[in-house]
C-alpha cells in the first residue's frame, strides 16, 4: 500500500512543475485535497483493509496529507508574490555589520588558574581548597617557621587576633590536607593570600597563589624537576628552558627558586627579565622533615615535594602586563582584552 502513497507523491511533484499562475496551484489543491480528491480516495480504502493494518495506513495517509498541503501552500505563496511585479525601491545590503552579541570574559586571573589546574590535572593532581582566615599554627609553626624566627620577616602578615591571621601563603593547605589524609598525596591548592605590602605597580596586599604538593614513597628532587618541567613546557611553550637556583624556604629542604628563559627576548636579555635572560616564576623544594613531623608522617618512609607560584606574576609575564593593580580595578577595557 505504501507504494501507492509514494506514487501519489511522485505524481504531485511532477505536476507542480506545470504551475505558473495561482489558479494552476488552486486547481492542483482541489485535485489532491478536495472532497473528491486523491487523498480522500485513499482514505476510503481503509475500511477494506485488515483490522490490524488500518491504523498504520490511516496514519500514513494523514502524514501524506500534511506533506501535500505544505508543498501546495508553498507554491501558492510563491506564485502569488511573483504574480504582482514589484518596483525595486530598496536593495538588501548584504555588507551591513551583523548584530553581535556581547562576549563575556572570565577574569584573566581565573583563566590563568584554570590553565594551571588543567595542566596539573593531566598529571594527576586534585584541586583542593583551604580557609583564608587561618590559625597562626598552619601559616607558621606547622610549616617550620617558629615564632621570633628571622624568616618570619619574609612573611609579614595581617592579623585578626593573636593566633588568627590572614594566610600569607597557600602552603597552609598542605598541612590541612596532610592532617586528614595519608600518602600518596597529589594536590594543587589555588587561592587568595594576603600580605601587608604597600600597593604599587608590583605589589598588592591581596594576590593569588597556586600551591602544589606531591608526597609518596620514593619521590625525589629529580621528580620535582620532572613535574615542573612538564608544567613549564605545557604552559609556557616547548622551547622554554627551566633553571633552578638554591634558595631558602623554611618548609622545604633542599629549596629552589625556579626560573624560566625569558619568553619576551628568548633569553637574550630585555627589560622584563632585567637583562638576565631568566625570569623567576615559582618556588619549590623537597618537603622539610619537620613539616612531616608536624603532620605525623614518617619522614624516613615518605618523601615529597611542594611548589608555589604567584598567579598575578605568571599572568603579567604571559600578557606583558606591567601593573598589578589593573587586575583589581576591573576596567572593562582591560578585562575585554583576554
Amino acid at each position: 500500500m505504501s507504494d501507492k502513497l509514494e506514487e501519489v507523491k511522485r505524481n504531485l511533484q511532477d505536476e507542480t512543475k506545470t504551475i505558473i499562475t495561482r489558479k494552476d496551484a488552486e486547481q492542483l489543491k482541489i485535485k489532491y485535497l478536495g472532497r473528491k480528491g486523491i487523498v480522500n480516495d485513499l482514505m476510503k480504502l481503509i475500511p477494506a483493509l485488515p483490522t490490524e493494518k488500518r491504523a498504520a495506513f490511516g496514519q500514513q495517509v494523514n502524514f501524506l496529507k500534511i506533506e501535500i498541503t505544505d508543498i501546495i501552500e508553498e507554491f501558492i505563496k510563491r506564485v502569488s508574490s511573483e504574480a504582482i511585479p514589484k518596483v525595486k525601491t530598496e536593495i538588501f545590503d548584504i555588507t551591513l555589520p551583523g548584530k553581535r552579541p556581547l562576549i563575556g570574559k572570565k577574569h584573566p586571573l581565573t583563566q590563568t588558574i584554570d590553565d594551571i589546574k588543567e595542566v596539573f590535572a593531566r598529571l594527576g593532581f586534585d584541586v583542593v581548597y583551604g580557609p583564608e582566615v587561618e590559625l597562626e599554627y598552619y601559616n607558621f609553626e606547622a610549616l617550620n617557621i617558629p615564632s621570633d624566627h628571622p624568616s618570619r620577616t619574609d612573611f609579614d602578615t595581617f592579623y585578626i587576633r593573636d593566633d588568627v591571621l590572614l594566610r600569607s601563603q597557600t602552603s597552609t593547605v598542605q598541612i590541612r590536607i596532610m592532617e586528614r589524609q595519608k600518602p600518596p598525596i597529589r594536590i594543587i591548592a589555588p587561592g587568595r593570600v594576603y600580605r601587608p605590602d604597600t600597593v604599587d605597580a608590583r605589589h598588592s596586599f591581596m594576590f593569588h597563589q597556586v600551591e602544589g604538593l606531591l608526597v609518596d614513597e620514593g619521590v625525589s628532587f629529580a621528580d620535582l624537576k620532572g613535574v615542573l618541567n612538564q608544567f613549564i613546557k605545557t604552559y609556557f611553550g616547548q622551547n622554554i628552558q627551566m633553571r633552578l637556583r638554591p634558595s631558602f624556604f623554611p618548609f622545604t629542604e633542599p629549596s629552589a627558586e625556579v626560573d624560566i628563559s625569558c619568553s619576551i627576548c628568548g633569553g637574550k636579555g630585555c627589560s622584563v627579565c632585567s637583562y638576565s635572560g631568566w625570569v623567576e616564576i615559582l618556588g619549590a623544594g623537597m618537603v622539610d622533615p619537620n613539616v612531616f613531623k608536624a603532620v605525623h608522617y614518617d619522614a624516613e618512609k615518605y618523601t615529597g615535594f611542594a611548589f608555589g607560584m604567584g598567579v598575578e606574576r605568571i599572568t603579567m609575564l604571559k600578557y606583558g602586563i606591567s601593573d598589578i593593580r589593573l587586575f583589581y580595578e576591573n576596567d572593562m577595557r582591560f578585562l575585554s582584552q583576554f
Binding site: G124, A222, K225, R243
Partner: peptide, 17 residues
C-alpha cells in the same frame, strides 16, 4: 641543581574535578 636529572618516574594517576 641543574646537574640533577629531570625525571618523571612518578606513577600514573587520574584526577577528578
Amino acid at each position: 641543581y641543574n646537574n640533577i636529572p629531570t625525571k618523571t618516574s612518578i606513577d600514573v594517576r587520574g584526577s577528578t574535578k
